[in-house]
């Protein structure tokens, strides 16, 4: 299987893993890692599909999209970590809901 199919499929798998992690995992750091899986998954899809140019250099537009996406992901990760840190020092919790209490 060529990389132009393999990479996007791996990317889809990474993305799916990220979706599961973001929704199912409770620990906030796990959620941040899952969010980064989402990003890496999409970037892999973009890079893999950009290589379908029959021997020429890859299509530069998806590569530029990846570079923009990486910067945005860095920014989001930094904010998420800062928020988690602040939340942890305010509540001592590392999950959104305390284990026993279920609000609403």
């Amino acid at each position: 299987m060529s990389t132009t199919v393999l990479y996007p499929l791996l990317g889809a798998a990474l993305f799916a893993l990220g979706v599961w992690g973001l929704l199912a995992r409770k620990h906030l750091i796990h959620k941040v890692i899952a969010a980064n899986f989402l990003g890496s998954g999409v970037f892999l899809v973009l890079i893999g599909l950009a290589g379908r140019t029959a021997g020429a250099d890859p299509d530069p537009v998806p590569l530029a999209m990846v570079l923009t996406g990486i910067v945005v992901t860095v920014a989001l990760t930094a904010l998420a970590l800062a928020l988690i840190k602040r939340y942890y020092s305010a509540t001592g919790l590392d999950t959104l809901e305390p284990a026993e209490e279920a609000e609403q």
Partner: peptide, 13 residues
Amino acid sequence: LRAAMRYLFASIL
């Protein structure tokens, strides 16, 4: 802070 984090994760997804 809790609401903001839930918002952030939904926003990233």
